[in-house]
């Protein structure tokens, strides 16, 4: 089942008299359950493309369809709701809410979805245990290591039961061990719960673990490899 489909997506920035094609006609289909990395050098358009797929930015041209919804048809508030209910985000610098504990950070997304207390409590427990932080539920982000914070960020991304998770350079700030742990955990979630992961990265460790690797250069796909 195709969950993400982009057609001739372009993002053009106008800088004085020069047009910069950050993304230049990307056609892509991502199936449910993929574990895919978008790679490429800095400035290749990975993050811009991911932002557009995540509904955070709008394409200058082209179409992005997520689970049969053309996100260009959504109004600003509808798009926020769409992101909340369909997309999980994991950022390079974790971006947890610093005043909330790990548990509350995960719960926060479900509060935005108006889920019941009971459901929230159960899912928080389940997710924190899944990312191996059941015993750190009451710690604030400042009391957790970078790797642990990123695990909480993954738990938060999954809390809303999204259709897929977009992870923008999720391992950029992590050491090798934390990176391996995080990738193990995400691979397990992908395998066991069929959660779709789409990474933007230039971390070879992530690339090695991805089952599909799409390479962008100058805003265009130059290769799309699926590992056997």
């Amino acid at each position: 089942m195709i969950i993400i489909k982009t057609e001739n997506v372009k993002k053009i920035y106008q800088e004085t008299e020069v047009h910069v094609h950050a993304v230049n006609g990307v056609d892509l289909e991502i199936e449910q359950g993929e574990f895919t990395a978008i790679v490429g050098p800095s400035g290749s358009g990975k993050t811009t493309f991911l932002n557009m797929v995540g509904g955070l930015d709008t394409p200058t041209e082209g179409k992005i369809v997520i689970d049969n919804t053309d996100i260009a048809d959504l109004k600003s508030n509808e798009l926020i709701d769409f992101r909340l209910n369909n997309i999980g985000f994991v950022f390079q610098s974790y971006n947890l809410i610093p005043v909330l504990t790990a548990k509350e950070n995960v719960e926060f997304i479900m509060l935005l979805q108006n889920r019941s207390k009971e459901e929230r409590d159960d899912r928080v427990k389940e997710l924190l245990e899944a990312v191996g932080l059941g015993d750190r539920a009451d710690n604030k982000p400042s009391e957790l290591s970078g790797g642990q914070q990123q695990r909480v960020a993954v738990a938060r991304a999954l809390a809303s039961k999204p259709k897929f998770v977009l992870a923008d350079e999720p391992t950029a700030n992590l050491d090798s061990k934390s990176t391996e742990n995080l990738l193990d955990m995400m691979a397990e979630l992908n395998k066991n719960e069929n959660i779709t992961f789409l990474f933007s990265t230039h971390d070879q460790r992530v690339i090695n673990r991805a089952r599909r690797v799409i390479t962008l250069e100058d805003g265009k796909i130059i290769s799309d490899e699926t590992k056997g």
Partner: peptide
């Protein structure tokens, strides 16, 4: 970030 992860602006 908060708007990105799905928090409505009015909230």
């Amino acid at each position: 970030i908060l708007v990105a992860i799905g928090m409505k602006r009015y909230k």
